[in-house]
């Protein structure tokens, strides 16, 4: 009888998790892409995040804010993997040809993305949480386990660096 109750609980737990994962994994993947700049790495990050989330699903569900918890895991996993050097830059066999056409929306998007990827991972994480996820300074500080003061300073530094990079890159694109 007790065993049967355990199975039922497990089945309910899995069903709830699957519903959440199916509904939210696209958004999580997009956030992961902003952090790492590669869709396949973003896919791996999303899978690791959901895996950890499922392992703690009972507690997280009881606590309430599943969405915020998932984002926190995602950001921490990203920073942790970066620190351990899991991701390395891959060399490409051929350098893509330079385009002489005027900058398009796609090109500007690439410029923006290139500038974002130039930032240190922690600054990137702060900017993504603050401006993409629209989190407060306090929420961001809690997720990244840093002080609100550090969030403010890293956010300001990140923005300033992003502007400088964008200025340089946009200048290069326009000059072509």
């Amino acid at each position: 009888m007790r065993r049967r109750a355990g199975w039922v609980r497990e089945a309910v737990r899995e069903r709830e998790f699957r519903e959440f994962a199916e509904a939210r994994q696209a958004h999580l993947r997009r956030s992961a892409y902003l952090l790492c700049g590669d869709w396949h790495q973003a896919q791996d990050l999303t899978q690791t995040t959901l895996m950890k989330l499922y392992a703690a699903w009972g507690r997280v569900r009881r606590d309430g804010n599943v969405e915020a918890y998932a984002r926190t895991i995602l950001t921490r996993v990203f920073i942790d993997q970066h620190r351990r050097g899991v991701w390395r830059e891959e060399l490409v066999e051929a350098v893509p040809e330079e385009q002489s056409a005027p900058p398009t929306t796609r090109e500007l998007r690439l410029v923006m993305q290139a500038a974002l990827m130039e930032l240190p991972p922690r600054y990137r994480a702060v900017l993504v949480l603050r401006f993409w996820e629209d989190w407060s300074v306090e929420q961001t500080a809690e997720a990244l386990r840093i002080t609100p003061g550090t969030v403010k300073s890293q956010s300001a530094r990140g923005l300033r660096r992003l502007r400088q990079l964008l200025g340089t890159l946009a200048h290069e694109v326009n000059g072509r």
């Binding site: 994962a21 396949h40 899978q47 392992a55």
Partner: peptide, 13 residues
Amino acid sequence: LPSVTDAAVAGGR
């Protein structure tokens, strides 16, 4: 990209 739900459930277990 394919769904990662099954892999996540297996990994979580």
